[in-house]
Design a protein around this nucleic acid. Structure first.
Length: 491
RNA sequence: CGGGGUGUGGCGCAGUUGGCAGCGCGCGUCGUUCGGGACGACGAGGUCGGAAGUUCGAGUCUUCUCACCCCGACCA
């Protein structure tokens, strides 16, 4: 087999890059830091979108759309928020071009300067809260449960396909509530939507928790996240949900009359997942031969490849496969029959493995003879013949099995790479040599977290929800601690 | 923003002392092949990132410039 991917062992980062490009998920564009998401990659994103979108609808949310541009003055209304995003904003300053004086090319027309500059949204809290001000007057207008699917821009210094790009796609939910309790409940409810999605659809186990002050969203009172472990032991924050308190309501003066006729500021949440999930999906399951996709998110769940010598044989196989295909489609399975005669079977095998198609059926003269089909699993690379009779049931249960298997593999990997220690020396040694997650005691201060970060590159990923309360001593300062927190190097 | 590197057919690269722009993959046509990335023959495709300079002559030397990549600080 021609080796086309760098192996994970050789260079994990390179493997990831190779894979994203070779599997046709995305490529770098002519614009620095911005990627082109290719049809195959976008198909996966669309599946994620469609599942999440229906979950948002089920939990009572409606979609809407707010502008890409945010007046500069809006961004500065919430102090922490502007502080957090100021360094990575793209700014629109002019609205017209003109022909260059030299004759060729165009240049900015300096006479067309905007009175107020526009920020390309790094997130939409400000424009949305400015709008909510007009939508909310009474407790009867609450809760307000809105989501938007959009692109945002954060001018990142260094970018990586899907994991960190200057422009990325995401959804951002923005809700307004009458009480603090309700807003917190919403924040956690959506965090749970994310964690269930990660587990049940992406087949990635995640740890839900709260962020420390250092890692908190700019403008939030509390940030919750789901953290996943990648195959190199690093953590990937895969979704966030923020309890915003009354910060934005106060900044944008969003008030409502409660039942007793008293004017109050509303309580808020915001939550989002992005195309970064694509990166998580790639890095959680894939191997040196290519992508491994969970059946529930695979654009093609089953590919059928005909094996033949002469064209009469192909006609025969075509007829046979059409029957199989219809049975599978009737069972709700996404099937592709690839009978292109421009590529050989071996080439197709390798290509669909690279693209992570969960199951591959091969149908040749031998199979027709034996009334069987050769089925190859992408996750285990196992090949086996199954009777044609009842193939749709076989495929269905294999797909279920693959979905479970890759989740279990990811869970097993995480378990094996999660450590517990009470010694800072050991902590350093683990981070340095083994990687993975570490549960350790921490005194709760920003200083200690920063010290650990500087000395080891590890950060506190989260304080897990429903964490076991367990008195101990901070691994650095020895000060008392009531629980262990989750440390790891992160993307 | 600091450090390092690279720009030559679609992609990956070679190009010696300055002397006819090459190789592999891919692409096209034809034939033989087809149960794990087939092979042969023929063929198409490049103002060598850009500008200026040195020279009889520049992919190669000089100056300037642009772009991208990698490593760090920052970040979902």
């Amino acid at each position: 087999m021609a080796k086309i991917l760098t192996s994970r062992k050789e260079n994990y980062a390179q493997w990831y890059n190779d894979l994203v490009i070779k599997a046709d998920l995305a490529e770098n564009s002519a614009v620095r830091g911005c990627m082109v998401i290719k049809p195959y990659g976008y198909a996966i994103w669309e599946k994620m979108q469609s599942v999440l979108d229906s979950k948002f609808k089920e939990t009572g949310h409606s979609n809407a759309y707010f502008p890409l541009f945010i007046p500069k003055s809006f961004l500065s209304k919430e102090a922490a928020h502007v502080e957090g995003f100021a360094k990575e904003c793209a700014v629109v300053t002019h609205y017209r071009l003109k022909s260059s004086s030299g004759g060729k090319g165009i240049e900015v027309d300096e006479t067309a300067k905007l009175e107020e500059e526009l920020i390309i949204r790094p997130t939409s809290e400000t424009i949305i809260w400015n709008t909510y001000k007009n939508w909310i007057q009474s407790y009867r207008d609450l809760p307000l449960l809105i989501n938007q699917w959009a692109n945002v821009v954060r001018w990142e210094m260094r970018t990586r396909l899907f994991l960190r790009t200057a422009e990325f796609l995401w959804q951002e939910g923005h809700t307004a509530h009458a009480t603090k309790e309700e807003a917190i409940e919403e924040t956690i409810k959506m965090l749970n939507v994310y964690s269930e999605f990660a587990k049940n659809w992406m087949a990635i186990p995640v740890i839900s928790g709260t962020k420390t002050e250092n890692e908190r969203f700019a403008g939030a009172v509390e940030t919750y996240s789901i953290e996943a472990m990648m195959q190199d032991g690093k953590a990937l924050q895969s979704g966030t949900s923020h309890f915003l308190g009354q910060n934005f309501a106060k900044a944008f003066d969003v008030t409502f009359l409660n039942k007793t006729g008293k004017l109050e500021h509303v309580w808020a949440s915001s939550w989002g997942v992005s195309t970064r999930l694509m990166g998580a999906l790639v890095m959680a399951h894939s191997d040196d031969r290519g992508l491994v996709l969970p059946p529930k998110l695979a654009p093609i769940q089953v590919v059928i490849v005909p094996i033949y010598k002469k064209s009469e044989e192909l006609e025969n196989i075509n007829r046979e496969v059409e029957v199989i295909r219809q049975k599978l489609v009737a069972s709700g399975i996404t099937v592709k029959y690839d009978n292109r005669d421009t590529h050989k079977p071996g080439w197709k095998f390798a290509d669909y493995e690279l693209k992570g198609v969960p199951l591959r059926l091969a149908v040749g003269p031998r199979d027709i003879e034996n009334k069987s089909v050769e089925v190859a699993r992408r996750d285990t690379l196992e090949k086996k013949s199954y009777p044609l009779e009842g193939i749709e049931e076989t495929v269905k249960s294999l797909l279920t099995e693959i979905q479970e298997n890759i989740f279990n593999k990811a869970l097993e990997f995480r378990t094996q790479n999660t450590h517990t220690t009470d010694s800072y020396e050991e902590f350093k040694e683990i981070i340095e040599n083994k990687g993975g997650f570490i549960n350790a005691h921490w005194d709760g201060t920003r200083e200690t977290e920063e010290k650990i970060n500087q000395e080891t590159k590890a950060t506190i990923r989260c304080i897990p929800l429903n964490n076991k309360q367990e008195p101990g001593k901070c691994i650095v300062t020895g000060k008392p601690s009531s629980q262990r927190v989750l440390f790891a190097k992160a993307y």
